[in-house]
Amino acid sequence: MPFAQLVSSGLERALNKLLQLDPDSAAKLRKLKGRNLQVRVRELPWPLIFHFSDEISLGVVVSEGSESARPDCLIELNLETLPLLQDSSQLSALIQQQKLILIGDIYVAQSFSNLIKELDIDWEEQLAKVTNDVFAHQTFHSAKSVMLQSQDFIQQSREIWAERLTKEGAVGINQQTLDQFSEDVVKLRSATDRLAARLAILEKAHKA
């Protein structure tokens, strides 16, 4: 089975799905219409080529097809450099350090990077399309509160342990701390259960 094509097909589908969910992306994509961008990530076995039209067509650059003309823009980089591209003021430094090779029209690379960076998807609205507004709102409310509680929990635990471990003396825990910890776990668990129950209902409704 052509594995590279399986990967590019999955990526293409996911990218286009995401773009469809953001009503503003069509206008941004239009700016790139008719252009292409080749991306060589050094750790990956095959370079990818993005062709832009009303959607993104993603191809694998195979040696059998490589006699074709140069792409409009080619970028070559390591995986670790990829996140650094977010900050466009870093580009020339990255090029100088040879962490990034950029050949051709930089506008194509920048527009593509903006398209992805500025994707603005209203997930609550997307969920509301398959369920109803109230349900979607409640589910998101639950998800958000689980997120917040988890963050609080992690932060508190980190603080408690940091304090314990840096304090001189025994690493023992007093009863009050232990009670607080258990209470937090119970709270978090019930919030997670509520979210899981909601998701189960959603899944059932979707299947029906």
């Binding site: 094509q5 292409n36 062709h51 191809g59 195979v62 097809g65 003309a69």
Partner: peptide, 18 residues
């Protein structure tokens, strides 16, 4: 579903461009 991948490979080998 594999015919889709064979077809993708064909396009990748075609050197097609705008």
């Amino acid at each position: 579903g594999i015919h889709r991948l064979w077809k993708r490979y064909t396009i990748d080998c075609s050197g097609v461009r705008a």
